[in-house]
Design a protein around this nucleic acid. Sequence first.
DNA 1: CGAGTGACCGCAA
DNA 2: ATTGCGGCCACTC
Length: 104
Amino acid sequence: MTGSDFRERVYELVAQIPEGRVMTYGDIAVLSGHAHAARIVGGIAHFGPTELPWHRVVNRLGGLAAGYYGGKLGHQLALEAEGFEIKDFQIVDFQERRWLPSYH
DNA sequence: CGAGTGACCGCAA
DNA sequence: ATTGCGGCCACTC
């Protein structure tokens, strides 16, 4: 176990999000072992490596992140570039786009 | 080394 | 329906 297991778990989950899919901060938090740490996921995202697809991480409403690099607009553009349809800073058919990790 | 902050979520008035 | 508050962990100053 390295010092921060939670953080690495978040990295793993985010890195495994396939293109065209999204995960919520809450889901990542639960899957990381801390259901009430959705906020921490955001904190990690802020200081986390930019090579990870953080733009595929949204809130439980399928909404965009306010503090994303470039703001909501940048987040929206990043998602639209992946084929997402955004309306009112929210992902259309977000529930269908929602992805949960499968151990295969 | 101590305290504050944060890209959130859920519940209570 | 909206508004406000507490909670958790990691990172920065």
